[in-house]
Design a protein around this nucleic acid. Sequence first.
DNA 1: GCCAACGTTGGC
DNA 2: GCCAACGTTGGC
Length: 152
Amino acid sequence: MAYWLMKSEPSVFGIDDLAKRPRKTEPWDGVRNYQARNMMRDEMKKGDLAFFYHSSCPEPGVVGIVKVAREAYPDESALDPESKYHDPKSTPDDPRWYCVDVRLERKLSRTIGLAELKAQPALAGMQLLRRGNRLSVMPVSDAEWEYILGLE
DNA sequence: GCCAACGTTGGC
DNA sequence: GCCAACGTTGGC
């Protein structure tokens, strides 16, 4: 079982939006970065856990835990001309983009903010904290996972 | 709104 | 294959 971190802008889709979904489950679509896609498509397994991270907002940070409910399948939003995630280079026969389904495990009791994460020497090597990091889906080590939950 | 850091695109 | 231009991300 692997651990992950997945970013979303709460003004677009936040943890409270996920909580309101039927069965608290939602396709994690719209990822348009090859590295992130490859991790979702090739490495994410059903049952894996991920931190739900709020980005581009007043208090960026980890706000909850989600579980991978369905492994990667073609991202239909790429095929939909009406979607803002539409990619004309993706076709049903040769889908370029993939998504997984995530289900809310639980909201954290509080936001564990980016500033707080940065202040932890134990997390100095975390991918999220590396300079210029822009990946929206990234792995989290077992040690990082447990340490962050210990901060809650 | 600014800007640094990337990723992608396309001409050559 | 190189690289400049451009677009996007995301913290501040």
